[in-house]
Design a protein around this nucleic acid. Sequence first.
DNA 1: CTCCAATGTGAGGATGGCCTCACATAAATG
DNA 2: CATTTATGTGAGGCCATCCTCACATTGGAG
Lengths: 205, 205
Amino acid sequence: MSSRISSRGGRSPQRQRGHERVAALLAAASACFVEKGYDATTMTEVAARAGASIGSLYQFFPTKEALAGALIADHAEALYARMERLVAQTPGWNTEELSARLIRAFADYRKQHPSFVVLVEAGGSVPSMLGRTIRQRMRDYLCQILAIHAPGLAAGDLRPAAMVVQQLMKAAVALQNEQPAALRQAAQTQLRRALALYLKELETD
Amino acid sequence: MSSRISSRGGRSPQRQRGHERVAALLAAASACFVEKGYDATTMTEVAARAGASIGSLYQFFPTKEALAGALIADHAEALYARMERLVAQTPGWNTEELSARLIRAFADYRKQHPSFVVLVEAGGSVPSMLGRTIRQRMRDYLCQILAIHAPGLAAGDLRPAAMVVQQLMKAAVALQNEQPAALRQAAQTQLRRALALYLKELETD
DNA sequence: CTCCAATGTGAGGATGGCCTCACATAAATG
DNA sequence: CATTTATGTGAGGCCATCCTCACATTGGAG
C-alpha cells in the first residue's frame, strides 16, 4: 500500500504518523486531481485539503510530479491485481459473461480510483512514461485473456485484437460520465453487446 | 473560415494584413497545442512561432482561452461539414462501406486538424463547454446516420447506439498514435470489423 | 501629401505557483 | 532527563506566465 518514493530528496515515512500523513496527502491529491485536473491543482491546495502544511507535503513528495507518480503507481498496482484475477477466471466464462465482466471490471475500477484516468490520460505535463508502460502491460493482460478465450486465434492477430478490446474498455470508462443514468445504462448495455459480438467473431477465426 | 472573435476586447481583423496575421497565429497556436498541450504552451511561444509580437497576438485574441476557443470553433465547423457530407451519402452505402467510411472520416479529420482532439479532450482549464456542445451535435449526426442505415431501429434505441458508435470513432482516432505502422493498421482493420458487426446487429433489431 | 484607423511592438506590471529553508515540535532511544 | 531523529510549519525566494500600455509603423482614403 505504501508507495515507494524516489530516494532523491523525498524521505519515506518511518513512524506511524508519517504513514498516516502520506495517506492523507495522497487522498487529498487524488481528490484535487479529479476535480481540477493535474495542471490546475496546486500543491498548496493539496496540503490544505490534507490538513497539512506545504513543508510537510514536500517532506514526502519532493515534487509535484513525484506526487502524481506515487498516486499512479499505487493505482496501477491495484489495476494489475484486478487484471490477474480476471485472467485467472477467464477459463470458466463464455463470451457473454467475459464481455460483461470486462466492462464491469473497468467501470468498477474507475469508481474506486477516479484519479487514475485523469492522470494517465492527461496528455499534459504529467509523467507520461508511466502511462505508456501501464497501457502496454494492460495490453499484455488482454492478450492472455484472448489467448485463453479464443485459442484458435493466430498469434499475430492477438495484439491487434487486444488493442481493440482495450479501446472498448476505455469507451466503457468514458461512458460512465454520461447523464442521465438511464441513457448511460442503455449505452453500456449496447457496448457490452458490441464487445460480445466482436469476441464471438474472434473465436471463429 | 474567419473565426468570429468575442467582441469584448479582441478586435476582428479588417485589412488583409490582419487576416493573414490571425491565420498565422492560429496555425502557430495549433502546432504548439499539438506538441505541448494546452497548459504547457505559452502565449509568447505562439507569437514567436507566428513571427509576431505578443502585443500583436493579444490584439486579436484577448485571452489564451479565446485563442483556443477560436481554434475549436474553426475546426468544429469543418467537422460539421464533414458529418453532413457523411449523412448525405449514407443512403447509398451498405454496412461494410459505412463502417469503413466512418472510420476513415475520423482518421482523416484528425490528420488535418490535429489540435482539435488535444483541445476538446483536454480535461484541464480549456473551455470545455464548447466540447460538450460539439460532442452533443456529433451524436445528433450519428443518430441521423443510424436512422437512415437501420430504419427498423426503435427511436429509443437510437441515442444509446449513437453513443457507442461515437466511442468507436474516438477509438479509431486514438489508434492513430500507435506504432509501428503495421500494428496500427491491423488494429484499425479489426476495429472496422467490430463496428461493422455492431451495425449489422442493429439492422436486425 | 495628409490624416487616421488598423496594426505592430516589447518592456514591464501583476499574479500565482513550485519549491527552499531555518527553525519548532513530537516521539523514540538510552 | 538528555539526545537524536522524524515530522511539522509557513514566510519568502525565484521564476514563469498572462496580459497591459504607451508608443511606433503601415497603408488606404480623401
